[in-house]
Design a protein around this nucleic acid. Sequence first.
DNA 1: CCTCGGTTGTGAAATTTTTCACAAGTATTA
DNA 2: TAATACTTGTGAAAAATTTCACAACCGAGG
Lengths: 208, 208
Amino acid sequence: MSVQLPVQTVSRLCLIYRVLLGMDRETVLSSTKLGKLVNIPAHTIRKDLSVAGKLKSSNAGYKAGELLDFIKGLFNFDTPLRVCVAGIGLLGSSFIKNPVQEGGQFIIVAGFDTNINKIEVMKSDVPLFPAYEMADKIREMRIDLGIIAVPAQAAEITMQRMKEGGIKGILNFSPAILGDKDIAVRNVHFAEELRFLTAMIPDLEKGV
Amino acid sequence: MSVQLPVQTVSRLCLIYRVLLGMDRETVLSSTKLGKLVNIPAHTIRKDLSVAGKLKSSNAGYKAGELLDFIKGLFNFDTPLRVCVAGIGLLGSSFIKNPVQEGGQFIIVAGFDTNINKIEVMKSDVPLFPAYEMADKIREMRIDLGIIAVPAQAAEITMQRMKEGGIKGILNFSPAILGDKDIAVRNVHFAEELRFLTAMIPDLEKGV
DNA sequence: CCTCGGTTGTGAAATTTTTCACAAGTATTA
DNA sequence: TAATACTTGTGAAAAATTTCACAACCGAGG
């Protein structure tokens, strides 16, 4: 990771990583076949791997397991990360109840909410804490990433608390748009995905 | 919409549209102020509006309402779209129960599931149908967009059924990676967002 | 009416990203 | 061994995108 890879390249490598995860390690894939699986042109994949520093292996396709290990090593996907969730509403609790598997890369270790009742009532394997303890708990538990699933008006303060605790990255599902120069922030907004989709459809004759 | 705008520009305009929606129409914003709200450099915003064909209005900032109308007109965001949801699981039903508002731009008009019991048991204002009726219902009801919230192995067939019904765009929340040359498809995957976030953090000293 | 601080819109430059083309390697079959 | 049909990795060309710089404009306050 000495060189800073283009964002798009990182994004594509993540996508490739995903399909490789669900595949037998022995499968052999050409850049063309792989490209069809992820909807990326073959030459783009080869270039991405090239700039990412892919070592010369063979000129007869990639073995799924090797490629997986390469990307894993590149981004340190082998070290598990501690994740917390702020906001135990519908979405937030779904992360706690159905934690993402992904080969144990992410471990949900704490949940936070301003509503103390919710914390006490809810049954969960993941320990829940009141929101004002967020910074302390994040520091104590050495939490790496935060998922924000609070209402828009609480998003900013939540990010501040997470920063205060020394968090490294935030995935924000609240309608607020967050950003920070010190930490990585990614905003995800369902309605906007729909809107973007709509905007990308060239000749949409809208329904009544 | 005569010219095809760069994807990134479209994406940024959608983001701007979002903040404008939650703002008084009379507010006057300079490109600099607007830029701070959405984390985009001011000159990029001005360029985006320029290539999008923004007509000369004044040299003293943008009025929120006017800018909103401009983007709305550009992408036809004023005509409501009919949306259906395939897969009435945790995520799918959340779309049906808590429909996105967004100024009535999207109307959830139908849900589909292979499990007939689920359809009968579930109370909902939105009519629910068995999956095999999907293509017919989409055609009948003139549905524009589809949200896929089914398991990975059912994703492909679901897309095919939607295509068959003549759908224009798909937002895919299943773990499968979908793509099609005829219709617009957007894949959203939570774990991958986390992974991408991780990959973008330069010097992450991972926890134990 | 003139000036000052702030603003937009945009051509051109700079940069980034993608695409292309091809030498060189591999596996297979005869 | 030779021929065939693949394949990769990458420098260079092409294309796309972002950044810059600045003329022209606006509004307010003398």
